[in-house]
Amino acid sequence: MADQLSNDELVQRFPGEPITHDNAAHYRGRLRRELLVNRCDDCRLWHAPPKPMCPECWSWNVTPLPVSGNGAIFMNVFLYQGPPAPGVDYSTPYPVVTVELEEQVGLRFTATVADADNGDIQIGKAVRLDWRDRAGSPMPVFVLTGADA
């Protein structure tokens, strides 16, 4: 069903998101609860954010493919203020993390951590992908696995 949505319908499902020709497939993947990352068909490099050309070999043969969503927190920040967004409460600092995914060293994805105390969100902690509905659409989040990476 997600693949049958028109571009206009896709934009309506993710209000306020910067949907472009280069990342529309990634948002369609989110509707299936799949985190897609571009991978070069020639040199096999994974790269994010989505771009139509491989940054390593300059090939245009790039395919969005699902990743496991498993990884370790590479960087974290806590936001004390920001623009209003569904599901975001700044009365407690809101965590934003960049996770290095297990598919490749240097492959990183940024989202929030759900269901964790802020004191437990630390660099090096292992996480896995999960999904939360925000404004009626699935959004990727990470949850702590209880292990160190």
Rank of each mutant, 00 (worst) to 15 (best):
V96G: 00
V97M: 02
P86E: 13
V99G: 00
S137I: 06
G71R: 02
F74W: 14
M75Q: 11
L5F: 11
I121E: 06
V67D: 03
C43K: 05
V37M: 14
E100Q: 10
G16T: 11
Q4H: 14
S6K: 12
R28N: 07
F74R: 04
W60R: 12
R128S: 08
T145A: 09
E100S: 09
V99L: 04
T92N: 09
L101I: 08
H21F: 01
G106V: 00
P140I: 03
P83V: 09
D3Q: 13
R128Q: 10
A24E: 14
E56S: 15
D3V: 05
E102I: 12
V11T: 09
E17V: 02
V113H: 01
L144R: 08
P15S: 05
D120Q: 14
V67K: 07
P52V: 02
L36A: 00
Q122W: 11
P50Q: 10
E102V: 14
Q104I: 02
G71P: 08
A2V: 01
S68T: 12
A126E: 13
Y27R: 05
V141A: 01
N118I: 12
F14M: 10
E17K: 11
G136D: 05
G136I: 10
Q104V: 00
E34F: 05
T63N: 03
P49L: 01
I19V: 07
A24G: 05
V127F: 03
E102N: 08
A147S: 13
R39T: 02
G119F: 12
S91Y: 00
N76Y: 07
D148R: 13
P64I: 01
I73Q: 01
V141L: 06
Q4N: 14
T63S: 09
N118C: 11
E56K: 10
N118D: 11
D148I: 12
D8S: 15
D133P: 00
T20C: 03
D3M: 14
V99T: 08
D120S: 15
D8R: 15
I73P: 04
Y90A: 08
G146I: 09
L35H: 07
P52A: 12
A25F: 00
W58T: 04
L101H: 01
Q122L: 15
P83T: 06
A48N: 12
F14N: 06
Y27D: 02
P49C: 01
V88Y: 08
T20R: 10
S91M: 10
F142E: 01
Y80K: 15
E103T: 09
P18C: 03
L144C: 07
P93K: 13
P49S: 06
V96L: 13
N7M: 15
P18M: 08
K125L: 06
K51N: 02
F109D: 01
E34T: 05
R39W: 01
A149F: 06
D117F: 15
D89R: 15
Q104R: 05
I121H: 07
P86N: 12
V37G: 00
